[in-house]
Design a protein around this nucleic acid. Structure first.
Length: 871
RNA sequence: GCCGGUGUGGCGGAACUGGUAGACGCAGCAGACUCAAAAUCUGCCAUGGGUAACCAUGUGUCGGUUCGAUUCCGACCACCGGCACCA
């Protein structure tokens, strides 16, 4: 064994051994209960960042730990390879997105491998591979057959200069990012997936996911939304009928049907058909509608917007009283929620109240406050006006509590054919059409005679040409004659291929299923998916808490309903890891752009007196502004390149630092000193084994021949073994597990003596330390295990069981409290009866002094832990 | 505004089921080794008082339950995240 810890050589050697033995290739037929450990696959942006390192280290520690527990582990890896950045890079460098993407994958794969992750690379996939996205297309066609996929118009951002559709992130302050042109809204046909059809199931099943963090479940529940209410139809009055040229109803959705008798007007969204019809002959209204539509995109972040509206001049009739009510266009009604229209009850809804005050509309009190907070609704608004109560002045519906009134009014409406109870979800259907090149083609052919024709299964995949280079002016697929022109599968006539591609969230909605059946070119998934699913542990960033996880749950449900997989929920346990933060420093010159400085180039000193942080540049001592901590990012120049750390200290140091510095769910502050500390610990472990091993092989351990100091060390070692298993296996916290091994190593350092049994105990303690660290820092442990004279390689070694005999103690410390305050400690044999402990505690010198002769009123004994004397 | 989370030393954090608050590490201070420095090792390290033994205080604030509360309950404050004219 070498005296010096040389991470580069050790890591190269360990990785070579693992690869040669194909240690991490998963096998469905291997013994042991399956454990599918999945980390969210990366977008191949070019280089790994520290967030990736953290994510994949957590997954790898769990995988390696479970492997040691005898589980049959699958840990795969792939690439979320379609997306906009590849097109941007292509425009900047003139390289096709395919080449840029594949180059990045090759580089980043090397980076991942240098971290020593226990990944089964035989199952690697990239979503831009035709044998992957073929099945996106195949399932899309099944959804089309089932009516789960459908076509309707949707609104997109249109850059009038580049003649192209822009993603939201390409719209900056309402202008195109490249041209600076004012972005327009355009309606175009798009494909949607009917995720709303599963809203109820997706919401309900959240309760059956105890392995998910509470906050993710709450975020999904909020996103899906759920309101129990009533659809109410307001028949058109004569003026509306005349304008629209037909009889009809204006439908609204309300959760407060109990207040229907207090409705004094109806408000519709700017995009509502009635509003648009009224605007045709009303320039002022048309201008207002225009304003509303602009406002909704550009001022979405305005918290308090003035309630504005205009009368349409049209009227509808109250469904129960027949009273004529005016119809307003209001900026607080959303076309995308419910029916795009609301009944307004100013007396019992705050927004309606505010609006009614502004436009002098009548306020009709129809609810009596159960707490007597008010008799009649008058300005100003108080929250009690909006609360449920008992109906008053509501004709035949008077005197009911709100819930009963909703039922009665819903029944009355239903009898007239003017309404019914309904559940409304906030969730909207998933629009998957993207007017871009670097994505999975939607398998549709447009035929002038047959219409939209699905591509037959035998012609799948519809291959994306890989040699195109986008130039920013529209989708290059639309300019590629080879792609565009085709024969109609139905009539054989000349037809045109759909040029839209799928949202990349489609790609990531089922990749975890494909890993199980990667080599099957006949089916999307096979029986192996049922073996491996559900994913036992899914690890990824909180930023995917809503969209990705919801889409993946939906997609799995669709596959389940089609009989393709047995599970309905894909992820049994979810671990959302925190972000990696670093200090941010900048300086804003009088002219020019703000300049950010890398933390490596800055000295940060906190003044002890003022508590003010002072940051100075290392090179010239000039002062820069300290902005605090923030996520590592290129734009703020506060990133740390993983390669720099692994090259300088090794992957094990990087892994140890990540796992030790914070629990996985919390954000992690980068600290160069912390990295040094992690490295220092590994050197200490190395030295401890070296010092021990260089004295030659120890004799066999004989537990009956141990000195007290030996028994102490052995007890600590076995306690550590138990704690580490519990911390990693049950609690999934790693920092405390590492802390426990550090304590063990400190104990080994204190343990002296060259007696044969002393050395045997140290041998066992070091073996346990190496086993406990093996999932976290696998390379150094691989080498140390050999140095400890073990014939079997560490990757084949199972976790060791705690020896209960090692944990026994002759005496345990018992704490003595008086009135809950710590006053002394006594030693007693474990399992001493309460009366003995009580007597010993009362006899204690310090205790006597504090009692000052007073008689205890009561004594509480917690066996083996403490005695509390109450006076 | 609504929903969720988090508040503990100079810093990251620990205390899992109500039972010794501050494990482990970082930084700092002192010492050993060294011609010296780095590295390494040892000791100290919540606050106030005291030479010390020790005493008092202390887990965002205020209250409650309990023999005993960082932990449970109530009210409030601050910060972070998500959603938001949601009918």
């Amino acid at each position: 064994m070498q005296e010096r810890y040389d991470p580069a050589a050790i890591e190269r050697g360990a990785q070579a051994d693992w690869n040669a033995q194909r240690v991490f290739v998963a096998d469905e037929n291997a013994p042991g209960e399956k454990f599918y450990c999945l980390s969210m696959f990366p977008y191949p942006s070019g280089r790994l960042h520290m967030g990736h390192v953290r994510n994949y280290t957590i997954g790898d520690v769990l995988s390696r730990f479970m492997r040691m527990q005898g589980r049959n582990v699958l840990q795969p890896m792939g690439w979320d390879a379609f997306g906009l950045p590849a097109e941007n890079a292509a425009m900047a460098n003139g390289v096709p997105p395919a080449q840029w993407t594949r180059d990045n994958i090759a580089y980043m794969k090397g980076q991942l491998q240098s971290l020593g992750l226990s990944i089964d690379w035989t199952r690697e996939l990239a979503t831009c591979d035709p044998d992957y996205y073929k099945w996106n297309q195949w399932l899309f066609l099944r959804m089309l057959e089932k009516g789960i996929a459908y076509k309707k118009t949707g609104v997109v951002n249109w850059d009038p200069v580049d003649q192209t559709v822009l993603a939201n992130e390409q719209v900056i302050d309402g202008r195109g990012w490249r041209t600076g042109a004012l972005v327009e809204k355009r309606e175009i046909p798009m494909y949607y997936l009917r995720i709303t059809g599963h809203a109820d199931a997706l919401r309900g099943a959240l309760d059956e996911l105890p392995g998910w963090p509470e906050r993710v479940r709450a975020m999904q529940a909020n996103w899906i939304g759920q309101s129990h209410g009533v659809d109410v139809d307001f028949p058109y009055a004569a003026d509306t009928e005349q304008l629209l040229g037909k009889a009809g109803v204006l439908r609204v959705f309300t959760t407060r049907a109990d207040t229907l008798m207090g409705a004094t007007y109806v408000a519709v969204a700017a995009e509502h058909p009635v509003a648009l019809a009224a605007a045709a002959g009303n320039p002022a209204l048309a201008a207002f509608i225009d304003e509303c539509r602009r406002g909704s995109t550009m001022e979405a972040d305005l918290a308090t917007q003035e309630k504005k509206g205009l009368p349409t001049g049209l009227h509808v009739r109250h469904p129960l009283t027949g009273e004529s009510l005016p119809v307003f266009v209001a900026n607080y009604v959303l076309m995308t929620y419910g029916e795009g229209a609301v009944m307004a009850v100013p007396a019992h809804d705050e927004r309606d109240f505010e609006f009614a005050q502004q436009y002098s509309l009548p306020v009709r009190t129809v609810i009596a406050s159960p707490s007597g907070a008010y008799a009649q609704v008058v300005a100003p608004w108080i929250d009690a006006y909006g609360e449920a109560g008992v109906t008053v002045d509501s004709g035949e519906f008077s005197g009911l509590d709100s819930a009963a009134a909703v039922d009665a009014i819903a029944a009355a409406l239903s009898a007239k054919g003017l309404g019914a109870k309904r559940v409304q979800y906030r969730l909207r259907d998933w629009g998957i059409s993207r007017q871009r090149y670097w994505g999975c083609p939607i398998p549709i052919i447009h035929c002038p005679t047959c219409g939209d024709v699905p591509v037959p299964d035998k012609d799948l995949p519809v291959r994306l040409p890989e040699d195109l280079v986008p130039d920013g002016s529209g989708n290059p697929l639309a300019k590629s004659a080879a792609f565009l022109h085709c024969a109609c599968p139905k009539c054989g006539g000349e037809a045109r291929r759909e040029t839209d591609t799928m949202d990349t969230f489609v790609d990531s909605s089922w990749y975890f299923l494909r890993f199980t059946s990667r080599d099957n070119d006949q089916a999307m998934v096979d029986a192996r998916a049922d073996y491996w699913l559900p994913v036992d542990h899914y690890i990824g960033g909180i930023e995917h808490a809503i969209l990705h996880l919801l889409y993946a749950r939906f997609w799995t449900r669709v596959m389940h309903d089609l009989g393709l997989v047995k599970v309905a929920e894909p992820f049994a346990n979810l671990l959302t890891q925190g972000m990696v933060l670093n200090h941010i420093f900048h300086r804003t010159p009088e002219t020019g752009r703000r300049e950010f400085f890398n933390p490596l180039d800055v000295d940060l000193v906190v003044d002890a007196a003022t508590k003010q942080a002072v940051a100075t540049l290392k090179k010239d001592g000039s002062v820069v502004t300290y902005e605090g901590l923030g996520t590592m990012s290129k734009s703020r120049n506060n990133g740390v390149d993983p390669n720099v750390i692994t090259e300088k200290f090794g992957a094990d140091t990087a892994r140890l630092f990540m796992m030790f510095t914070a629990p996985p769910e919390l954000s992690l502050e980068w600290s160069d000193d912390g990295v040094l500390g992690a490295n220092r610990f590994l050197r200490r472990v190395w030295k401890a084994v070296y010092d021990h091993a260089s004295l030659g092989a120890p004799v066999a351990l004989d537990v009956v021949a141990l000195e007290p100091a030996d028994r102490d060390l052995r007890r600590i070692a076995h306690q550590t073994l138990g704690k580490v298993k519990d911390d990693i296996g049950r609690r999934q916290v790693f920092n405390t597990a590492i802390a426990a091994v550090m304590e063990l190593l400190n104990a080994v350092g204190r343990h002296a003596g060259d007696a044969p049994q002393a050395r045997a105990v140290r041998q066992e303690a070091l073996e346990i330390a190496v086993l406990c660290l093996a999932p976290i820092v696998p390379h150094i442990c691989h080498a140390l295990w050999q140095s400890l004279g073990q014939a079997e390689p560490l990757y084949r070694v199972r976790w060791r069981e705690v020896d209960p005999d090692a944990l026994t103690q002759d005496l345990v410390e018992v704490v003595v409290q008086i009135n809950g305050k710590l006053r002394g400690r006594i030693s007693a044999p474990p399992g001493s009866p309460d009366v003995l402990l009580e007597a010993a505690a009362l006899a204690d010198e310090t205790v006597q002094r504090f009692l000052e002769g007073k008689t205890p009123r009561k004594v509480v004994v917690v066996r083996g832990k403490l005695v509390n004397i109450v006076v």
